[in-house]
Design a binder for these strands. Structure first.
Lengths: 231, 231
DNA sequence: GCGATGGTTCGGGCATGGCCGTAGCATCGC
DNA sequence: GCGATGCTACGGCCATGCCCGAACCATCGC
């Protein structure tokens, strides 16, 4: 079983500002090099190296060496979900303490960003809303599903979902967006949607940030397929 | 937005062994006094008091004074879900390091326990399995739902679920059980089932533990209604 | 009222662990 | 080959924060 000691060990790893910044940066699902992570954490490479060793040894991240670089990424979706859950609680005390400082970079993140494997931010929420409005999905606080109609809708767009044999509905996971405080779609469906949007050139990952840029093509696609217009 | 500093602050609170033990103890959803929590954490009351003040000020727990006692409980389901997620990750590294020490107390926890608001352990998993087997529920990795048939089944048992107006299905949240590594039912449905089982005297909360005792009456009820027989 | 119990506050001891400078390995480009 | 770059290992400085003992406040039983 999971002893409280192990519990504390994991939480403690996430509890250091530098490591927290690293985990946050890795939440876009990409693999980052040690120096990149050192930068986002605002520490020297030596220190970062130590932190990364700890995270790796605990199994929170995976390291993949490629030439003289070593790329680090989150180990699995469970870790991502943990980070998500902590962020959820952390955002609860945010507004209560500081009146929310919204810089321009912050604004980009609010508009659209990746959340490990799916689209979050205003775009993510808007897409989820659109699917619900069109009768393609149902979302509640506890869960979400894609209706048969929605399944056809998505597959018509080239997004194929592997349906479990017994069920006619495809269940998916709602993820309470910490900036919008409304649910977006995560899990298998969210991943597929995000992948497809990237592959189609609707959105593009920014270089040093979790922010997503919506391309001109994407603007049109989201409006046409989903009726989504941001701002 | 949730800054990484706030993220680290929250994670750090959960990252201390003493506080971790407290949060774990509070995961049964009950409210415990300061001394009780000091005991489970293995520290003196003074120290516990300090920890509890921190947890309360961060909004992780709520304090309710009653006479000369002060009862502490988890602030909300989000905190519980965070603890759950961390435990999930922590249990991942458990078996890999130690061959798992199963004491008698541990065995009781594995059989049945509360997980904030629902039933976990072998009983929780067995109930979820039974609902699926009977066509009352569908569960996938990403989500779960109660079928109309299941809705009738539960309401026939006296468990009324508030159905969202637009949907005929009741979505619910699967919770990957850390001991069984299989899903049990959380969220609204899980809560209702747990409440009903307690109210009907099918299960009873143990005094100083999260373990649930299955009563003789409960044994019969679970067998009759769900076809569930443990061991 | 008075003792007993539950809880908190304060102060100081002490260990843990984060941080960086220096130095040492690996790999790449040429 | 040789320098440059990415990363890691070691040692020492230093702050954070956990812990307890002692004292103080609140509440209960009587």
């Amino acid at each position: 079983m999971a002893s409280t000691a192990q519990f504390a060990e994991i939480a403690n790893l996430a509890g250091d500002p530098a490591r927290a910044a690293m985990l946050d940066a890795l939440m876009d699902g990409r693999a980052l090099s040690a120096t990149e992570l050192a930068n986002v954490a605002g520490i020297t490479p030596q220190t970062a190296s130590g932190h990364l060793a700890q995270l790796a040894s605990a199994g929170l991240i995976l390291v993949q060496k490629q030439g003289r670089h070593r790329y680090h990424r989150l180990a699995n979706a469970q870790v991502a979900q943990m980070v998500e859950a902590i962020m959820q609680v952390a955002s609860g005390l945010g507004p209560a303490r500081k009146p929310v400082r919204t810089g321009p970079k912050d604004e980009a993140l609010r508009t659209a960003r990746t959340c490990y494997d799916h689209i979050a931010g205003r775009l993510g929420v808007a897409l989820a809303d659109a699917l619900v409005r069109g009768g393609h999905a149902e979302i509640s606080r506890d869960g979400a599903l894609i209706t048969p109609k929605g399944l056809a809708f998505l597959s018509g767009m080239g997004i194929a979902l592997t349906t479990p044999p017994r069920s006619k509905r495809v269940l998916c996971r709602p993820c309470l967006d910490w900036s919008e405080r409304r649910p977006d779609l995560a899990g298998t469906v969210g991943t597929a949607l995000c992948q497809h949007s990237l592959a189609s050139g609707w959105i593009r990952q920014s270089e040093g940030s979790r922010a997503l840029a919506i391309t001109r093509k994407g603007e049109a696609a989201f409006r046409e397929h989903f009726g989504v217009v941001l701002d």
